[in-house]
Design a protein around this nucleic acid. Structure first.
Lengths: 342, 342
DNA sequence: AATAAATGGGCAATCGATTGCATAATAAAA
DNA sequence: TTTTATTATGCAATCGATTGCCCATTTATT
């Protein structure tokens, strides 16, 4: 689609019988332009409805104040909160945000990243898809001197800035809380172990068991239980064991925990007395279920802000060779009724 | 931040001792290039890690395959679903999405729109902020031949494509359902009446009352009750009336309805027997509250897709002078336990 | 008054990709 | 072999804004 004619600096220059470079200088607050000329240019530009062409400016200046964001699913609360937090900070800095979603598919993620590279974005902020695949596309980002920040789900082998939750500690705290409430047979609903965050959450679970002298029981650990439906299935299995668990830690998500709660309700199992339930992510619904669900808050909005701050404070300047590091955000255990025994 | 050197078509041209225009033609699948030359260029480009500079290409071509989206709040489920739906379609078409949020502030919305105009986006898709203000910024969009699609909350005076829910009918249906359930004193929680969608929802409420021969009672209508907290406040007032309502239609949002439910629970009022509750938007939590909440589903993801389809089918071609029209999506009443009397 | 310094305006090049047109090279037809 | 037609390549200009440098004019200093 061909652009129709818009006012350019040449139109203003012609009207005022000055050079286009003078127009440009006047519009950019340069010291190399006379105040009277500047005022006249600004007035004329407003009259002629001039607006800068960012495409041209960015090309000439060799930069593009745009950050690309790749998330698994835009409409998942955690990610939409992250984006909201990012947008707050980037707006203040005059940056655009381009949002892509991978729908948890590796090939989609690769496409998104390539499109962002083409756009010459200044930075790519990414939480990787659940589907496994090579990370070559991320290496290409680094090869082109585009800043790369990974958050939440990260590729360990890539030496970039990473903003993560201390999943292990949060998990550890949650399980310790369950143990302190007197639960002694605690099941774990796991996510895919190729994804760091899920591995860490399992690690925390195992450490808490070990710390408390509890045995690790394989059949109490269910893989790939991250949706409500998968969580419900896993729960049905767990409850049919000869010795069923007396608590379930859905380390993947609150949706999974909700699945647990629904099965427990359907079977008339008393929560929290006969079964404790703990989720992960502090989704909005966890405080309104009956009983409300103990969960872990990842502070997603402020996490988004922290990521953007990280870019603007340490990565935006090209003359600094900032040492990639891991910023770890402490999630908080939110204790509610689903794990509160009297 | 100055871009560091990346491979350009001139680097490839030099290496192969051909003209840059041949490189360009080879990369763009032109019929005016020899197959052998093309294969050689593609191979060399891959070896040299070439990736197109979209800034340069867009400037020369005079277009930018990018759609700007302005929503009140990114992390509100309705809007994040809209964006998710948009992204599905725009991804397929090779378009970028730039996302802005107004935080319900008029000045913020104006800033967002101006930034998008500067970016020469092909289309702006907007749901306006709750804060009232002039719509001159939207007229500027039209003046520059950027396509403008309004959705959900629209400016009536602006003759653009609009994608809306039939709020009046949905509201009417909800209230008729309440009446059919035997509720006879139905309160309305309203949003700001400057915003069309809230006005239409009230209109539907009034029409249902009229249709059923029920009187309109001023004190049963509460203004500006769109958050959970405001909904709870309004409910406390309503329930302290000499003749309290036996149903409350929270026409602003499910959050407002949740506020109603919490107050009712706290006061030991039986839902749905003594008080019916109906929300709006089918937020995920409405099916998990106790009791689950009757609400209206706006099909937000498919609405996002419909908006994108509208752009690609009717607006993308610049030679068509598509007549602006209103696309009305039929929301669906989702009947749940909060309004189901035996 | 003459010289030096400061101001600010214009010119030309740049950014990287695209594209119209001219024409050289190649292929096909006479 | 010569003529005509086709292919595909190179050149130059373009897109709109920015910026370095030169230099004319103005201002300040001697």
């Amino acid at each position: 689609m061909k652009r129709q004619k818009r006012t350019t600096i040449y139109d203003i220059a012609q009207k005022l019988n000055i050079a286009a470079s003078s127009v440009s200088r006047a519009l950019s607050d340069s010291s190399k332009v006379n105040a009277a000329t500047k005022a006249l240019v600004l007035k004329t530009a407003a009259e002629m409805n001039y607006q800068q062409n960012a495409m041209a400016s960015n090309l000439r200046k060799g930069n593009n104040p745009t950050i690309g964001v790749v998330v698994p699913r835009i409409n998942q609360n955690f990610f939409s909160n992250i984006i909201a937090g990012l947008e707050e900070v980037t707006y203040e800095k005059g940056y655009n945000l381009i949002i892509c979603q991978s729908n948890e598919l590796h090939a989609r993620e690769v496409d998104c990243v390539h499109a962002l590279i083409n756009q010459h974005v200044s930075c790519i902020i990414i939480s990787i898809a659940a589907e496994a695949g090579s990370h070559q596309h991320l290496q290409q980002v680094l090869d082109r001197n585009i800043r790369l920040i990974q958050f939440d789900r990260v590729v360990d082998e890539l030496d970039t800035f990473k903003v993560i939750n201390d999943n292990e500690k949060a998990s550890y705290d949650a399980v310790m809380h369950l143990i302190n409430q007197g639960y002694s047979r605690i099941a774990l609903l796991e996510g895919p172990q190729e994804i760091d965050i899920f591995r860490q959450r399992k690690e925390g679970y195992l450490k808490a068991l070990q710390k408390s002298g509890f045995p690790v029981i394989e059949e109490l650990m269910c893989e790939n239980a991250w949706t409500k439906e998968l969580g419900a299935q896993a729960t049905t299995q767990l409850l049919s064991l000869p010795e069923p668990p007396d608590a379930i830690f859905a380390s993947t998500s609150d949706f999974s925990a909700l699945g647990v709660l629904e099965v427990a309700s359907a079977k008339g199992i008393a929560v929290p007395d006969a079964l404790g339930i703990c989720g992960y992510s502090n989704e909005p619904f966890t405080e309104i279920t009956s009983p409300s669900i103990t969960t872990i808050d990842q502070f997603s909005i402020s996490m988004g802000k922290a990521i953007a701050d990280l870019y603007f404070q340490e990565l935006e300047s090209s003359d600094l060779n900032a040492e990639p590091r891991v910023v770890s955000i402490k999630p908080e255990l939110i204790i509610r009724k689903s794990t509160t025994r009297n």
